[in-house]
């Protein structure tokens, strides 16, 4: 069969497709190309491309694994040196409120920082979640597409603001207001919570929007067909189905709050004092790190103790990740 015949046949088929007629083409008329049987046993250009592509991707992965491994290793070695080299008791580290590492191994207690870190994290998530869910519900259930897009861009804007700006705003606006209302310095967990609330709100909101959008439409239809109102459908079906993913969103928000350093440091007060209320100065793991890291000499106990705080942060972030995975698995069932 010549090339010209093949062209003609193509024209016929294309015309038939254009005019939407059904034409039966005999397969044998199209013919076959001559096969070079040796090609089947020889590597071709594509084979080499395959090797290269795979090699490059493995190389990149290798570099990243090495990087992550060395970060964990470095933080681990220095963080654990406090316990193995300087013989600080682990239980003392976790339970004592006496933080003065320059005075010796008996004064390395991180409880104040641990408690404060957890308090600002939990409180900010607690305050932010209802607002985030409300905003996400508005965006997915009630708002017009235009309004939802507008809100989406505002949320993205909030994510993009550098944390030093949030800290500065907190220092200028939040701290004086707290000082005026509650007395004292105004620095403390309340100020930290309020600043973190604004910072984790966009994270929780946008992940909650994804969670709500992932609820299949047919659940809403089924509910509507049973005479349920929009609000009943939201409260009894949509939110229930989306709960695991909303919890995941909250945990991502908490991870962000737990790890935030600069903004918190600017409003928390940075005194290593046990927080018996929300408006006295205290200190978080991160704020202690940022304020003290410049004041210590590498290899000393004071420096190693800070690395131990860093290690604790690392372990906590791992814990948040595992929690997210566990909830994800449970939600998939």
């Amino acid at each position: 069969m010549s090339k010209k015949d093949t062209e003609n046949l193509k024209d016929v088929v294309n015309q038939a497709i254009d005019s939407q007629q059904v034409v039966h083409v005999k397969l044998k008329d199209i013919g076959q190309k001559d096969i070079d049987i040796d090609k089947l046993t020889r590597p071709s250009k594509e084979t080499h491309q395959e090797y290269w592509g795979r090699g490059l991707s493995y190389l990149a992965i290798g570099v990243i694994i090495l990087l992550v491994g060395s970060i964990i290793g470095f933080v681990g070695i220095h963080g654990l040196a406090t316990f193995f080299h300087d013989h600080v008791n682990l239980w003392q580290f976790l339970s004592s409120t006496d933080w003065d590492p320059t005075s010796g191994p008996n004064h390395v207690g991180a409880l104040v920082m641990i408690v404060t870190s957890f308090l600002v994290t939990l409180l900010s998530a607690l305050v932010a979640t209802p607002f985030a869910v409300a905003v996400a519900l508005f965006m997915t259930e009630y708002a017009s597409k235009k309004a939802a897009r507008f809100l989406q861009s505002i949320i993205e804007l909030l994510v993009g603001i550098p944390s030093v700006v949030y800290g500065f705003l907190g220092l200028t606006l939040v701290v004086p207001v707290i000082r005026a209302i509650f007395g004292g310095t105004g620095f403390g967990i309340l100020a930290g919570t309020l600043v973190l609330f604004v910072m984790v709100l966009p994270t929780i909101t946008s992940l909650t929007v994804d969670a709500l959008n992932a609820v299949p439409k047919h659940f809403r239809q089924a509910s509507a067909a049973l005479g349920a109102t929009h609000w009943q459908t939201i409260a009894r079906v949509v939110l229930k189905v989306a709960t695991p993913r909303i919890l995941t969103a909250v945990i991502f928000g908490m991870a962000r709050a737990f790890g935030e350093a600069l903004a918190v440091q600017m409003v928390i007060g940075n005194a290593v004092l046990m927080p018996y209320n929300l408006v006295t100065p205290s200190s978080t793991l991160t704020s202690q790190l940022t304020t003290q890291i410049g004041n210590t000499v590498m290899g000393t106990l004071a420096n190693n103790a800070l690395w131990s705080l860093a290690l604790l942060l690392l372990v906590m972030s791992l814990f948040f990740n595992i929690l997210v995975r566990m909830i994800g698995k449970k939600g998939a069932k």
Binding site: Q221, A222, A225, L226, G227, A228, T229
Partner: peptide
């Protein structure tokens, strides 16, 4: 909402709630 309680509907794809 009241109308749909008197005129029910069953859909193409079975859609029970995950309950």
């Amino acid at each position: 909402y009241e109308l749909r309680k008197s005129i029910g509907m069953v859909f193409q794809k079975p859609n029970p709630f995950p309950k």
